[in-house]
């Protein structure tokens, strides 16, 4: 059992948990994730390690409550425990000095991008960060991002803060303005990563994305997380989650993400009905 030692509600339905997991805290690198299972009957879901504190023996996760498992997770309180936590999983990000990096993060994916942005900054990159959300109250980690960014752009889909529009609009403008960009890190919904990759493709700007296929074991055993990269089959959980955005088949990724949509709804409804009782 893995105890929750602190909790914060960052935004409506977005929570941050600090979890006791000393071994993972020692080992985890930027870009890596854990898989957790809330209880005996639960599903295994992947979540990025947002921060680690090897001294305290804790890791921090940030998650958005989107379905049954994340909602159930969100009901846990400090002092309670998660049945299973396994990690660190996935291949760590390649952290080196590229020069000027544009990092774009959409939605909860800010939590996924943050450890890498921080690490990139600490090895000497110049960071231009574009942080987006659907609206102002869903915007998370603005202060943290500012700390590690040389420039920070904010976008919201509804215009309640910063640029009215998408994170990719800003990327497009930076590219069009001829800004020197040595690397783009795009992390968010698959569609956003696809658009970002299309923007940089004609300019041959190295673009790294973090794919989020459905996962099960996350040890390379089941193949559910397979993603087509450069026409080869890759496993998101062990070969990834980061790949060259210009080589990823995003359409297939998106189609596969929706495989269980109906069942997920059924599961959520059953859960909500149970909670009402």
């Amino acid at each position: 059992m893995y105890q929750i030692v602190a909790e914060i509600e960052l935004a409506p339905n977005i929570k941050q948990f600090r979890i006791n997991a000393p071994l993972i805290a020692k080992k985890c690198m930027p870009g890596q994730f854990i898989v957790l299972r809330t209880n005996e009957k639960g599903e295994r879901i992947p979540l990025t390690v947002f921060e680690k504190d090897p001294g305290e023996g804790t890791i921090t996760i940030i998650f958005q409550e989107v379905g049954k498992t994340t909602k159930e997770l969100g009901r846990l309180r400090t002092g309670e425990a998660i049945q299973d936590v396994v990690g660190p999983l996935g291949t760590p990000s390649e952290i080196r000095n590229y020069g000027q990096v544009v990092a774009i993060a959409g939605g909860t994916a800010a939590a996924v991008a943050y450890p890498e942005i921080k690490a990139l900054k600490l090895v000497g990159n110049k960071l231009i960060t574009i942080l987006g959300a659907r609206s102002k109250d869903l915007l998370i980690l603005e202060e943290e991002m500012r700390k590690y960014s040389d420039e920070l752009y904010i976008t919201t889909d509804d215009g309640s803060k910063g640029h009215h529009g998408f994170v990719t609009d800003v990327l497009k403008k930076l590219v069009a303005d001829g800004k020197k960009i040595d690397m783009v890190l795009a992390i968010g919904p698959a569609i956003m990563m696809k658009v970002a990759s299309e923007i940089t493709r004609p300019f041959n700007i190295r673009t790294i994305v973090s794919v989020n296929p459905i996962m099960l074991d996350a040890t390379g055993m089941c193949g559910v997380c397979r993603v087509r990269v450069n026409n080869e089959m890759k496993l998101g959980c062990v070969d990834g989650p980061e790949f060259d955005g210009h080589l990823v088949d995003f359409d297939q990724l998106m189609a596969r993400q929706n495989m269980y949509t109906e069942k997920e709804k059924e599961s959520l409804h059953a859960y909500e009905a149970k909670m009402k009782k």
Binding site: K41, E43, L216, C222, G223, V224, Y271
Partner: peptide, 27 residues
């Protein structure tokens, strides 16, 4: 969609008990 490796199919069913969905969460 709808194409499984046997490992995925069997793992969902045996390890995660999806034959008891939605009592068990894995679909």
């Amino acid at each position: 969609n709808g194409v499984y490796s046997a490992n995925e199919f069997l793992t969902r069913c045996n390890l995660m008990k999806s034959y008891l969905f939605p009592e068990y969460d894995t679909p």
